[in-house]
Design a binder for these strands. Structure first.
Lengths: 253, 253
DNA sequence: GGTGGGGGCGTACGGCGTAAGGTGGAGAGG
DNA sequence: CCTCTCCACCTTACGCCGTACGCCCCCACC
């Protein structure tokens, strides 16, 4: 016990973000100040700046940490213990061996997506301060990318073309995904990474890469700002209105 | 000329809010500080506190001002030339003389609502800093009430029951109304007003009052916290998913 | 022509994010 | 074993924020 008591954990970025989430959970997002965060970690405020660039970066990190929590809640078993579930554990469900998208008529995309969305919402209900953070411009980190990959996999397996799935994700937007009013706000290029790391990452995101290469005909890794906000918004409205009209007819007949 | 000479326009709440909107438009919402606002008005910062309780109240007021702008954009002709509060056009479209809701089969609620929603969005695009404000807990002022009354009138006239219209407004939520992730956050009771003023106001909001008295069986003016968040969210998802499924079928067949 | 008070002003305080430079100690090199 | 280096953390300080508290001027009204 003396050994582990003396061991001084050296305040990593992960510890900083975890403590930030704890403060926000306990006392609200306004109580999350650099000084309060430092105090909780037994450290001075300026020491935090060695691990996060500034407060905005801290909040971005916290946002991605929450998305990571959603991701964990949504993934049945982490890939860590090797026992992947049959449902979403395959390397690339919805893809044929050639890499082209393939639909599975017996797959109930609707129920699957619904379950996932409600799980995401359940996580966010545990962090009521989080949704405003997730709508911030810089809030889309690595976890969010993987989350979208998962949603996209469901849609594609359910028979959505990449194009329609792209619209659908926009339409789901903040409500159904659980966060983010406007996804993919232009101007958030992928941060600096070496090319081979980037390529390795791309191999893990088959649907995302497929969609990107289909919708935008230039380099998928170049940028993400090809979305026509107005068109996406109108598509989302129309989908919602279709659903409402159906509900109305159901009750009035 | 004595009259037209500057009465030293004594810095009303309206002037304060208008100046606040101007600052936010010009320099962003972060530039809207009490000191900057005072300077723009040729006044000291502390003078503002005579007209707004604090910064939070200022932001609430700004939010409602933006909603008022939406309302003006959406209402064909303002009732301003008339001396008093003439109801906008018809006394109560969608209501029979008895006050019961009546539907109009020839009325295209979908197109009407779509137009209105897009108009609201257009206003918000002119104030990109506004949406986060509108999702704040205290952001629902008088203008928002009237805006909802208008949406409700469209739905009712289009054949929605009050119950379904209530769900629909929740489902439309931030996306289609143009703002507000969760409408009607519980705990925002109507501010203190004399009973007769309140009653006079209620007479101008027939649909809202009708919905309230139908959905909650107690006093409509008591509170607005009767909404089951989870149920509303699921209804919204289902409507959206219905619309997406229809879109999917449209492309895959 | 006082005079009361409503409307605007001056001062000040604590807290915020963070720029700039200092420091102790662990690990590498001689 | 000593010393040098450099990482991880600390100290100090600055300018901005919202706003509590109290003063004072000016104008309306007796």
């Amino acid at each position: 016990m003396s050994v582990e008591a003396k061991k001084r954990v050296p305040l990593s970025r992960e510890r900083v973000l975890a403590a930030a989430v704890e403060i926000a959970d306990a006392e609200g997002i306004d109580a999350l100040t650099m000084r309060a965060l430092a105090e909780r970690l037994g450290v001075e405020a300026m020491s935090l700046y060695y691990h996060v660039a500034n407060k905005a970066a801290l909040l971005d990190g916290v946002a991605d940490a929450v998305v990571g929590e959603i991701l964990a809640a949504v993934t049945p078993t982490s890939a860590k213990d090797g026992a992947d579930g049959e449902e979403s554990g395959d390397p690339a469900p919805g893809l044929t061996a050639s890499g082209a998208p393939s639909s599975d008529p017996s797959f109930d995309w609707r129920a699957t997506l619904r379950t996932r969305v409600l799980a995401a919402r359940a996580v966010l209900l545990r962090h009521p301060w989080a949704p405003p953070l997730l709508t911030r411009p810089g809030a889309f980190g690595p976890a969010a990318v993987f989350y979208f990959e998962g949603v996209l996999a469901i849609l594609v397996r359910g028979g959505f073309s990449y194009d329609l799935a792209h619209h659908a994700i926009h339409a789901l937007g903040s409500r159904a995904i659980g966060f983010s009013q406007e996804l993919f706000t232009p101007g958030d290029a992928t941060p600096d990474e070496s090319d081979e790391v980037l390529e390795e990452l791309a191999a893990q995101l088959p649907h995302l890469m497929g969609m990107l290469s289909e919708i935008s005909h230039d380099d998928p890794a170049s940028n993400l700002g090809w979305c026509d906000d107005q068109a996406e918004f109108e598509f989302g409205i129309d989908a919602l209105l279709d659903g409402l009209e159906a509900a109305r007819r159901r009750t009035s007949v």
